[in-house]
Structure formats: C-alpha cells, structure tokens
Design a protein around this nucleic acid. Structure first.
Lengths: 249, 249
DNA sequence: CGAACTATTGACAGTCGTCAAAGAAGGTGG
DNA sequence: CCACCTTCTTTGACGACTGTCAATAGTTCG
C-alpha cells in the first residue's frame, strides 16, 4: 500500500486545529512545537499511499497512527445492507487512526494519493507520556475532531438536500480557502457518491441539490468536480447553520 | 444553579468507557484508579444541579469541567430559526464541558437533577500534566465520545423515523441495561421533543414511529415515558445498524 | 379536581429514495 | 490524436414518508 519516500525532508509533521474566532475563512493553527515535530519525525516513517487504498479496516488491531501531510482520506462504516456511511474526511494536518481498546473503530481509505507520517502507537504513547505538552496537543486535537463530528451531526440533521449540500460546500471553503476571502472557485476532491455518503443522501439527491443551488445562482458547475461560488450570501442563506459564525467558525 | 452537598462521601469521581467486546449489553469500564479518584475528589466540589438548569452556554468562557455522578445532561446548539439540535446526552461517568480554545462549544442543560464533581479546568490541566496516566484516561474518554458521535451520525443518517427510533431505544437499553440480559421495561428519561431533537425529527414523527414499533409488536407503550420491550429481535430488525455488534457494541 | 402541558392522530403538500435511461467526462490503446 | 469504452453524473417519473398545521386525547402537578 505504500512506498518509502526519499524526498523526506520536504515534509514535517504538523497537527492543525481550527481557529476559535468567528471569521468566515481562516487557516488552521499549528499545535506542535518544532521540537515535537522533530521528535515525531525521528520515530515515524514518511510513506506514500496510492489513491483508493484501504489504510485499515474497522475492527482491525491498531498498530499505527498517521499524521497526514498531503492528500485526503475518508473513514466510513459499512452498514448491513451494503451501504456505506462516511463519518469523516481527513485533511493535511489531521490525525488518522481513531481506536478504541486497541482496535480501529472505522475503515479508512485514501480518496487522493496521500503522503503521511506513519507513527507506531507505541511510539506516540511513549512520546505523549514523557511530553505532557504533546499530550495536551493530542487532547486539543481530539476536542477539535469531536466538535467536527457535532458539526457533521447538525449538518445532516437538516431535512432537505440543498441545505446539507450548501453547508458542506461552505465547510469545504473554510478548509481550502485562505484566511482573507472566500474562494471564487472550488475544486471538489470528492465524487458525488462520496458527498452523498457523507451527507446521508443518494447521489441523485446530491445532483438535484447542485441543480437547485445552481438555478438560484449561488454556484455554477464548471465541470462536475469544479464549481464557481457566485453568491456567498445566497449559498449561506440555504444553510440552516450560520456558517462563518457559531458552530462552523 | 447548585448547592454544596453534605453527603459528599456517598459519591466518588468515575469515568466510564464503553466496552470493546461485542456483547449486546454490558456495563461500562472504569478508567480511573482509586488514587486518581481521590485526587480529583480533593480538588473538586460535589454539587447538585436542579432539573432544567442551563449549566453553561455555547461561547461562554470555560472555567469548569464536570464529572457526572448521577442524573442526565443534554448538550445542544440553537439554530438560527430557533430550533434546537441536541448533539449529545451525558450520563453518570461522563465528562461534561467540551471546550475549544477556552470556550464551551455547545450549551449544556440538565434533563434530570444532577449530582456532579465540578472540577476547575486549571486543576484538571495540572493533574493531567503531572499524571500521564490520567492524561491517557482523558484521551481514551475523548476517543469514546468521538465514537459515540459517529454512532449518532450513523443513526440519523437513516432516512426513516422508525429505524432512528429503534436504534435510539436499543442504545438506551445498552446504557440502562445490566450486562446479562436486555431490560424488559425501559423508563425513558426524555420527553418526545428531546428524542426528536436528538434524532433530527419532529415530535409528531417520533410519535408515529412509536406507533409503528408498537403495531409491529416490537415494543409497547405503558405510559409515554415507560415502554416494554416485547421483541428485541424485531426491534433490532428495524435498525439499519447491527446494534449489539459492530458500531453499537 | 382542574389547568397546563405533553403526546397522539389525521390530512395535505413537499421532498427524498428508487428505478430507469440518457448524457458527460476521463482513460486506454491503436 | 482520435475512437471507444467505462465510469460518473444528470434528469425524469412515481411511490413513500416526513414536516406542517390543526385538533383531540392523555398526563401530571398544583
């Protein structure tokens, strides 16, 4: 699934946390000190994982945690009827490998080619035990992830498809945008079915929701994977959540 | 909102984690050592909070964390249109007070009268920094909460009301049941509107879902707050999730 | 016992999931 | 570089279920 990287010096471990202030778009904050980065780098292996590869499966015994440097990962659960529910997307700066009692709680799969630091959990435990600042950083990151999950819950508790999709697009803007102004164009890293599996809808509904947002001139589909944001305010008005304030800050 | 308790010796701090094994019902596991319990007890205050009291509000500066000893708490977000979305319920053994950058991320309110240890975050931070085992316990608890949130996500990503309600009831069974067998009767600590706000439905839909589960003889409503579990298998068949296995273990 | 609140049930409009088919996009090999 | 094939996306029609509004029944507490 992976290959060692010879251009290892290009990357450094980093863990980001979203900002607390309620500006619309802003970069996430680094949680690690240079010393901690060096420590993690020393004891971990920088690997590349191809697109579409299952990194680990639900219920598997956990042996690593990954710090994503580049790329995109989805975690999901397979439901009895064979449907998939995506529970989270992980971006550069995120930590992959949520476990419980030593077993991974969901399945993880690369959506884009990924470059990541592969950290043996043993190593991370020891580092955390000896470095209480690192331990605090991990706690902060987990709080962050928990809040992210709550945002997800509120997003999909909206009944209609358009508000869910609008909320999702606005969220992507906060991730891929810079901290000055909203992006005019947004390149979607996901296929329709992945958006649907994240939003608790079908691909058809997602498609219809795109149509609705487009016909209201909030966005425009350049290609299925590239959209233009025409009217941020209108897009925001679709979402029940006050994106850029409150929970989606 | 609270009063000091003179019968303080009756309670001890405790943090539970759900079990890893996939049995249907089993008690949760204690994460704290007796020494850690004593430490926390020493530096915290045992308080009682009446029913229906707002413990803290979203965006408020965070000064305490609570370890619930008895009672039930809901955390929620108020959406712009005035609707409420309950993001979690907290039971005895849970930690209340999720914060981000020093501010609470949601509003917390007691659903039942609560007895809890009120721990200044300053104290908890210091204890965690000096006791790496405690720090690890907190990490474990947060992983637990994160998994709980994922379970919630999967629950409300089910389209129909009956599966959501069935999943919810089965979940309550795992919390209030003993670890030997499913409870025959279940006393609901929540009003219909609270169930609805948690499941992303309306009270009417919850009511109709109860009717459906009842007419299929899976459950029976004794009173609005007390139901009999007639057929566990049938109840389980409503839920898309394999409760008692997989994600709801 | 009565009043206020909670829960239930009914009718109707709107939206989603399903099934089906057509249209676009991207990748491969000649 | 182009034709072809596969995969992804979009659109349409229809049945089912939820939200809304409204009215009735049941519970609980003073």
């Amino acid at each position: 699934m992976n290959s060692s990287l010879d251009y290892a010096n290009e990357f450094m471990p980093s863990i980001y946390a979203a900002p607390v202030f309620k500006t619309l778009l802003c970069a996430r904050k680094e949680l690690l000190s240079p010393r901690q980065k060096a420590e993690i780098k020393k004891y971990s292996k920088l690997i590349r994982i191809d697109q579409g590869v299952v990194v680990y499966e639900e219920g598997e015994e956990a042996s690593y945690v990954w710090n994503i440097a580049r790329g995109l990962i989805e975690t999901y659960h397979l439901l009895p009827q064979g449907t998939r529910r995506i529970t989270s997307f992980l971006f550069p700066g995120d930590l992959l490998g949520l476990m419980e009692n030593g077993f991974y709680v969901s399945t993880a799969r690369t959506v884009q080619p990924v470059i990541a630091f592969q950290i043996p959990i043993q190593v991370l435990s020891e580092l955390a035990l000896s470095d209480s600042q690192l331990s605090a950083a991990l706690l902060t990151k987990l709080c962050q992830d928990l809040r992210e999950a709550q945002r997800h819950i509120i997003c999909i508790s909206q009944k209609d498809a358009a508000p869910r999709l609008a909320t999702f697009i606005l969220w992507l803007c906060t991730i891929y945008g810079n901290d000055v102004e909203p992006p005019k164009e947004l390149s979607l890293p996901l296929a329709r079915h992945q958006i649907a599996e994240y939003l608790g809808l079908t691909t058809e509904s997602v498609s219809r929701a795109f149509h609705l947002l487009e016909s209201s001139k909030a966005i425009m589909r350049r290609t299925p994977r590239l959209i233009s944001i025409l009217d941020m305010e209108k897009l925001r008005s679709f979402s029940t959540l006050e994106v850029g304030a409150g929970i989606l800050s």
